[in-house]
Design a binder for these strands. Sequence first.
DNA 1: TCTTTGTCAAGAGCACTGCTCTCGAATGTG
DNA 2: CACATTCGAGAGCAGTGCTCTTGACAAAGA
Lengths: 234, 234
Amino acid sequence: MAERTAGSIRARVRAEMVEEIKNAARRQLAETGSDLSLRAVAREMGMVSSAVYRYFASRDDLLTALILDAYNSLGEASEVAGAAVADRSDFLGRWLAVAHAVRDWAVAQPHEYALIYGSPVPGYAAPQDTVEPSIRPVVVLGEILNDAHNAGALAGRAPVPPPTSLSAEVRRVRDVVAPDVGEEAMVRALIAWTELFGAVSFELFGRFHNTITDLATWFDHQARIMATFLGLSD
Amino acid sequence: MAERTAGSIRARVRAEMVEEIKNAARRQLAETGSDLSLRAVAREMGMVSSAVYRYFASRDDLLTALILDAYNSLGEASEVAGAAVADRSDFLGRWLAVAHAVRDWAVAQPHEYALIYGSPVPGYAAPQDTVEPSIRPVVVLGEILNDAHNAGALAGRAPVPPPTSLSAEVRRVRDVVAPDVGEEAMVRALIAWTELFGAVSFELFGRFHNTITDLATWFDHQARIMATFLGLSD
DNA sequence: TCTTTGTCAAGAGCACTGCTCTCGAATGTG
DNA sequence: CACATTCGAGAGCAGTGCTCTTGACAAAGA
């Protein structure tokens, strides 16, 4: 059995090695465009391919590690951006900050975004570990909504109650993410979340090619309109 | 030079062969999950791998053919669904019909949906030929919007004009897709389009796993709310 | 009818991939 | 110091996309 003593030198070197391999993999992913070759990673590190298997049991394992890192990186970016807005009652500002943070992160590392929000990799099943980090941006958005509601700043729109078969599930999400808001607001939030990531995906995957070129301005405009839809504006 | 006489026997056999290969590829794509192997396709057809290259110059070529077919298949499904609504002035009904057609198509052939709306394939650049078939669903949606506008059924919402740097591009899209509507309505349409495909992607790529289970009902509910957002509902 | 011409499938082969196994060498711990 | 563990290297297997050559076959021309 491996001892893996916490502070041991071996363990530290090993951790560094793992980090280096992941970095090389990320670099390769960015260069070749979503095509990750274990052998090429090994080559770049000046080692033989079989040596990499000392650190990752399989290519999928390495990919999973990258995916987890990406989720956490995006999650942290969202949280930082959301917390950076000084005026906590500027709910529109907070929403825009987080939305832009998500887009900026995705534009900066498109391949990692594709890794977590593109089509799932063949044969790859997301382990349970990815669930918690994957909802971090959603939690941030939920907090804003909840705060706005409690401040009475969530404009009441004509309520369209979800059909009974959905009601329970929507409420369960609500309880986790924005416990104080109504069902109907939670539905709108889910829609806004869908639209946000739809917009980022469309931009990154070239869906707006030759249609809209000033993508940053478009994203901002569209995020503001979605804020109104949410009931957040002014 | 190849003669390729239109009705020649050789040409007909060849066309059938191409179709058979594509079908085998689609079948394999559905089974293995987005992992297309030319050799496996050849194996399934009882021929050797090199023979396939008589019909497709490369694996990417075969993939491109599948992508083009998928675009046209989805486009036709949208058009048929849109045309099937007898009451042409039931704009909400028409919108819902097309939206559901898109989702139904995607759910029925998830791998082909992933092919065209997932992360772009490594190193693969969409040829110009894919542009026209890829906007067919958008054209259908634009028509509904245009008809609704001309019938005075497009509820006027507080106009949020796009910033000047976007205005020209939005108007250019408008002129192609729904020439009679205002800029602000066109923006809402683009957002609704984004949300629609975001919703389908979220469902197919498992983003709602363990969150919302009655996905068909959710999609319908959410499409109705987006219709209100568009200004379509009654 | 015989010959030419183009098309086709097959097979071998190249460079690449993920992955396994074995074998020495280096290394930290008792 | 000796032992046990960990590591990197190398060979090797089965798979991949793709190329090139070879021989069979069928459609058109003399």
